[in-house]
């Protein structure tokens, strides 16, 4: 599993970094960044999916 943030959709809600702080962070404007750009370890898959589900802007992309 890999994750990306659609920068055009992200509004800086930060719901992703709350749901999965190991996977998502914040840039200097408060918009989401991806902290793990390669394959996510299996133990973070559930949190990454939760981050995607909680984003009101549909800005989290998961590739499996």
């Amino acid at each position: 599993m890999r994750v990306k943030v659609d920068a055009d959709s992200c509004q800086g809600q930060q719901m992703c970094s709350i749901a999965a702080p190991e996977v998502f962070g914040s840039d200097e404007l408060g918009h989401a960044t991806v902290l793990i750009t390669g394959d996510l370890p299996a133990e973070l898959h559930t949190k990454a999916r939760r981050a995607q589900a909680n984003c009101p802007e549909d800005a989290i992309i998961i590739e499996e």
């Binding site: 509004q11 800086g12 809600q13 930060q14 719901m15 749901a19 408060g30 939760r50 589900a53 909680n54 984003c55 009101p56 802007e57």
Partner: peptide, 19 residues
């Protein structure tokens, strides 16, 4: 755990002070 709330709004006017 599944909580896609919009207390801070949504779209380009998402509350700037949310954090």
């Amino acid at each position: 755990e599944h909580n896609r709330h919009v207390a801070f709004g949504s779209g380009i006017h998402r509350c700037a002070g949310s954090n």
